[in-house]
Amino acid sequence: MKLFKTAKESHVSITELMLPSHSNFSGKVHGGHILNLMDQIAFACASKHSQHYCVTASVNKVDFLNPIEVGELVTLRASINYTGKTSMVVGVRVESESVTTGEKKHCNSSYFTMVAKDENGKNVAVPGLIIKDEQGVRRFSRSMKRKEQARKRGSKFKASMFKADEHLELMESENVKIQLKNNI
């Protein structure tokens, strides 16, 4: 196994026709189907990079930007944006394309943290990432920042450290009615 690889070496792309069986009650392609495809391509990309089976540890925010119509082609592209010791952040981009007009729409992008596993289910080291351009530096740096923010967010809202009174004022402008039994 190589100690370092480029993102291009692990890049994966798939295109699939959206069928009526993929639709939801409004006739658009079901978001759950797209999430399933995104998870599959993230797995393929991470496994290709690490040369091990991988599991999904987390999925960063997924915003559905544009609906996908039945009959459109959906292309998913995945590449490694970040490598840790045993984990990788896989960037996944989803685009739809009208077969009749050729119009393309960016439907969503997300970031999957994948962890490489050995045959016994233990975490295993992954090759590092060779970065050759500014876009690679931007993606790696953004992943580092997201990792740092997640760590801070996790500790700030940990039950043992959470102080409700610090958040009540922020909640006043929200659609919520607070009826606490004990005055904080």
Rank of each mutant, 00 (worst) to 15 (best):
L17E: 12
T6L: 02
F157G: 00
N182L: 04
K8N: 10
N60D: 15
C54L: 08
V12W: 07
T100L: 01
E97P: 02
P127Q: 07
G128K: 08
H167A: 00
D39W: 10
V12E: 10
V89M: 11
G27M: 00
S47C: 07
C45Q: 04
S23V: 05
S87E: 03
K163M: 09
L19V: 14
H49G: 12
P127T: 11
L170C: 02
D39R: 07
S10G: 07
T113Q: 06
T15D: 07
S141Y: 12
H33K: 10
S98W: 01
E9T: 05
M88T: 05
C45K: 05
S87Y: 05
M18S: 08
R77T: 14
Y53W: 11
E119C: 08
G128H: 02
N24E: 01
G31V: 14
N123L: 06
E174Q: 15
E103Y: 14
T15W: 11
T56H: 06
F4Y: 10
V126G: 02
M114F: 04
E172L: 11
N183A: 09
I68F: 01
H11R: 15
S21I: 13
V92H: 01
G154M: 12
K28N: 14
S50R: 04
E134G: 11
S98Y: 01
P127G: 03
G136H: 15
S160N: 10
V55N: 08
K145G: 15
Q40P: 01
V137T: 14
R153T: 13
E169H: 10
R93I: 08
K152R: 15
V126P: 00
V55I: 13
A7W: 02
L19C: 12
A44D: 02
V176Q: 03
